[in-house]
Design a protein around this nucleic acid. Structure first.
Lengths: 208, 208
DNA sequence: ATTATCTATAGATCTATAGATAATGC
DNA sequence: ATTATCTATAGATCTATAGATAATGC
C-alpha cells in the first residue's frame, strides 16, 4: 500500500529524510497547514510548501494544482467534523437544547484548537473571503445556522425577537472564533479545560 | 498649508483625480488600510497601494520606506486610543470596576469597528506575529493587562484564583477580538448597539 | 533652486511547464 | 513500461533605485 514504507516506484527524492508514513499529498497538506497558519497564505511560496514536505518545488504539481487547492482542502477539513456533529445534535430531540449547545461549543473549540498546527487559524486568513473559497464559507454559514437553531431552542432563546437572536448568535459564534486567536497567542493552555470554559461563557452569552 | 488644495509644488500626478484633502502620506495609509484588511498584507503590492492613493508605484517611496512601515503605523493606530482610555480607567478610583470594564469593552469595540476599513481586522493578519511587529504586540499586551486588572477589581473577579482570572481575561479579550470577525462578515450591523451587546456579554463572561 | 512626481529598469523573486532520469513492475 | 521524482527555465511578476521632468518659489 501507499503508506507502507517498502520500496517505492519512481525516482528517489533528492533530500532523503526518514519516512513520515504519510502519502505525499498528505505531507503537502501538513506542510501547507503549518506554513499558511504561521506565515499566511500569500506569503507562503510553493517552494516552501514542497521543500517542507520533502520534495522539490516542481514535484508538488504531481499531486495538486497549486496552493489554492491545498487551502481549499484544509479549510473544508476544519468545518466538516463540527458540522456533522451539529447536524447530529439538531436531530436529537431528547437532550435539552442547553446541553446540546454546550456540547457543540466544546466540540467546536476542541476541533479548532486540535492538531499540531492550529488549523482553526485558517479562518482568519483574508484570502478566505475571495470568491474562489465561497464553498467553504457556505459550509461555515451552515454551521453558524446550527448554532442559531440551538440557541433558539433553549428556554431563554425561545422568547427572543429575531434581531436579538441574530445578535446572540453572532456573539456566541464570535466567541468561538475569537478563541482561535487566544489559542494562537497562548498555545500551551490545556485545550479541554479551555473548551469547557468557552462553552460556559457561550451559554452565559446566550442567556442560559 | 499641505492640506489646502491650492497650487502644489512638484511635478503633477499622472492620474488626475479630485483632491482628497489628505496629505499624500495619509492617502497612502488609507489605501493600505483598505487593501491590507481585504486582501491581506503579503498579497498587497506596493503598486496597488500607490495607485489607489493616486500616485505611481515609485512615488510611494518618497513618503514611506515600504509596506512594512505602513502596516506598523496602522497597527499602532488601532491600539493607541483604546490603551489611553484604559489607562484613564485604571487611574479612576471612584467609578465601580464593573462600570469601567463595561466602558472599556464598549469603547474598544467601537474603535475597532469604526472607520471605513475595519482596521481592527489588521490584528488578524498572520504577519503581525513576525518579529518586526513586536512593538505593536507589546502595546496590545498592555491593553490586555488593563482588562485583567479591571476584571480583578470587580467583586466577582476579586475572589478568583490566578489561573481562573487569566482564563476569564483571555475569554473576554477573545470575545472582543472575535467581534472583529463578526463585523467583517456583517458590516451593516449598527456598531453602537453591537458594542453595547458585546460589553454585556463580556461582563457576563467575567462573572459580573 | 527646490520639490513632488514621473519613467525606466536591474535584480530578485515566484509559478508552472517541459523534458530528463532513476527507481520498480512485468 | 510505468511512475515519481528531478533539473532547468520561460514568463510574469514585484521591489527599490536612478535619473528625468514639470510644477512652484525666489
Amino acid at each position: 500500500m501507499g503508506t507502507s514504507s517498502g520500496r517505492r516506484v519512481g525516482r528517489p527524492r533528492a533530500a532523503q529524510r526518514p519516512d513520515s508514513g504519510l502519502e505525499p499529498r498528505a505531507e503537502l497538506l501538513v506542510a501547507a497547514a503549518e506554513l499558511f497558519t504561521t506565515r499566511g497564505y500569500a506569503a507562503t511560496t510553493t517552494r516552501a510548501v514542497a521543500e517542507r514536505a520533502g520534495m522539490r518545488q516542481a514535484s508538488m504539481y504531481h499531486y495538486v494544482s497549486g496552493k489554492e487547492e491545498l487551502l481549499a482542502e484544509l479549510l473544508e477539513s476544519t468545518v466538516t467534523p463540527s458540522l456533522s456533529y451539529a447536524r447530529e445534535l439538531l436531530a436529537d430531540d431528547v437532550t435539552p437544547a442547553e446541553e446540546r449547545l454546550r456540547a457543540l461549543c466544546r466540540a467546536d473549540v476542541e476541533l479548532l484548537c486540535a492538531g499540531p498546527h492550529n488549523l482553526g487559524a485558517l479562518y482568519l486568513l483574508p484570502e478566505v473571503h475571495e470568491e474562489r473559497f465561497a464553498g467553504f464559507r457556505a459550509v461555515r454559514a451552515e454551521l453558524k445556522d446550527a448554532y442559531r437553531q440551538l440557541i433558539a431552542a433553549t428556554a431563554a432563546g425561545g422568547v427572543l425577537a429575531k434581531g436579538e437572536l441574530e445578535l446572540r448568535t453572532d456573539l456566541v459564534f464570535g466567541l468561538i472564533e475569537g478563541v482561535i486567536l487566544i489559542h494562537r497567542s497562548e498555545p500551551e493552555r490545556r485545550i479541554d479545560e479551555f473548551a469547557r470554559a468557552t462553552a460556559d461563557a457561550a451559554l452565559r452569552i446566550a442567556g442560559v
